[in-house]
Amino acid sequence: MINLKNINKSYSQGGNQFHVLHDINLAIDAGEYVSIIGQSGSGKSTLINIIGFLDDQFEGEYQFNDTQIQTLKRAELTPFRNASVGFIFQNFKLIRTMSVSDNIALPLLYAGEKRRQVQARIDEQLTRVGLPDVGDKLPTALSGGQQQRVSIARALVANPSFLIADEPTGALDSRTSAEIMQLFKELNDQGTTIILVTHDPNVAAATKRTVEILDGRIIADSEVSS
């Protein structure tokens, strides 16, 4: 599904080119559950932003199913991202002035649907993440773990090809982290492709495949032995 060939990425900073990713080659199939680990500043977020179509400024080839991503215009990338990826962020990034349901509705609204017609799908996802009754609450009324569940529901609602999670447990205590990892495992068992970035070896150990990055290079790529 995801096929990266010789990806290089540089940030330009005040005239200097800062080379972050070096010749990345990575293939991920549908249904996989992958963790990306590495030191701070090694380029994990940069890589995952490219995989998630957030960043189209890179060199190399990114083939997603039958599409060559590097040939798409930015205006074409947005609907593509909307339909293919679900994002989960470290600090949840729920819009605080909108109800939980309204937050989850956003990807569907940006896909052109009417708010009135999507409530059933929102409720379905809330039930799936174990929060069937919080739709009318504001995100601030929920605990961190609950907010992360809501953001997982938001990532799932448009039925994307894969989920991307950058440090999904970074803001949670260990017990809540374990609960979120349990939810990810269930989702993966149901067929959802998940790619997550983490510092936490316990989190990485709960996934099925680990890709390790050091200074912008992949130095290890292995199945997790269970």
């Binding site: 994002f87 956003l106 990807p107 940006y110 938001r154």
Partner: peptide, 16 residues
């Protein structure tokens, strides 16, 4: 700013 970022990530176009 954060809200704008979330909306853009979730499929909003700059025009939206």
């Amino acid at each position: 700013t954060q809200e704008i970022g979330v909306r853009l990530a979730l499929g909003a176009t700059p025009k939206n």
